[in-house]
C-alpha cells in the first residue's frame, strides 16, 4: 500500500496515463476529457445552438468516466493520501512567495494540492478571485472547445497520433500559460 500511497515517479505516472488511454481505446472510445463540457451543455438544454444539437448520449461513456474520476479523486485523497506535501522545487516556492502564495502543505496542515490563498470561497468575493477562478474557468471551457481538445485530447492523444493541429494547440497552451504565469499573474495577485 505504501508503494501506491507515496507520490509516484513521473515515469510511472506517464506510463499509467498510457494505460488509461489504452483502456479507453480498447473499450471503443478515445482519451479526451473536454468533450464532456459540450455534452453537459447539450444535455442541459442548449440544443437551440447547432454546436450543441447533437446526440450527447454518444458521450454518455465520457460522463460516466468523469464521474469515476471524481470517485477516484475521493479514494486517492483518503485511502491513498500521501503524508507529504507536494514536493515542488525551491525556486518555485520562492517565486510564489513573491506573489504571497505559501509553500505547499499537507492536507492536515493546509489545503494540500492547491494554495489555500486561492481555493476558498472568501477569495471569490475579490476581483483577483473572480479573475483567477471564474475567468480562469471560463477560458478553460471556451479555449478547449475552440481548440477542439485539452491536455488529454491534444497534448497526449493528438501528439502521440502525430497530429499537426494538436502540436499547434500545445504551442498555444504554452503561449497562454507563459503569458499568464510571467506577465499577468503578478499583476492580478500583486
Amino acid at each position: 500500500m505504501e508503494f501506491i500511497s507515496q507520490p509516484w515517479h513521473w515515469s510511472i505516472s506517464g506510463a499509467m496515463i498510457v494505460v488509461v488511454m489504452f483502456l479507453l481505446i480498447y473499450l471503443g472510445e478515445k482519451f479526451g476529457v473536454s468533450s464532456s463540457f459540450r455534452a453537459i451543455c447539450s444535455a442541459g438544454g442548449a440544443k437551440k445552438w447547432s454546436y450543441f444539437n447533437y446526440d450527447w448520449k454518444s458521450h454518455d461513456w465520457l460522463l460516466v468516466f468523469v464521474l469515476g474520476s471524481i470517485i477516484g479523486g475521493a479514494i486517492a485523497s483518503t485511502l491513498l493520501a500521501s503524508p507529504q506535501p507536494v514536493q515542488i522545487s525551491d525556486a518555485t516556492i520562492q517565486d510564489l512567495a513573491a506573489l504571497n502564495i505559501a509553500a505547499p502543505q499537507t492536507l492536515s496542515e493546509g489545503a494540500g494540492f492547491v494554495p489555500q490563498e486561492i481555493f476558498n470561497f472568501q477569495f471569490l468575493t475579490s476581483l483577483p478571485g473572480i479573475l483567477m477562478l471564474v475567468l480562469g474557468g471560463f477560458l478553460i471551457g471556451f479555449g478547449t472547445r475552440y481548440a477542439g481538445g485539452c491536455t488529454s485530447g491534444h497534448a497526449i492523444s493528438g501528439l502521440s497520433n502525430l497530429q499537426l493541429p494538436s502540436l499547434v494547440a500545445v504551442i498555444g497552451f504554452f503561449i497562454g500559460g507563459l503569458l499568464m504565469t510571467h506577465l499577468l499573474m503578478p499583476l492580478i495577485l500583486g
Binding site: V33, A76, S77, G172, G177
Partner: peptide
C-alpha cells in the same frame, strides 16, 4: 482555432492550475 483556442486555454490553465480532467478530480478531493 488550435492556436487561438489553445492560447485561451493556456491562460486559464495557468490561473486555475488545472486542465479539464484534474478539475473533476479536485472535486473528488472536496
Amino acid at each position: 482555432a488550435s492556436l487561438i483556442g489553445g492560447t485561451c486555454f493556456g491562460l486559464g490553465w495557468a490561473m486555475t492550475g488545472a486542465c479539464p480532467g484534474p478539475l473533476y478530480v479536485l472535486v473528488g478531493h472536496g
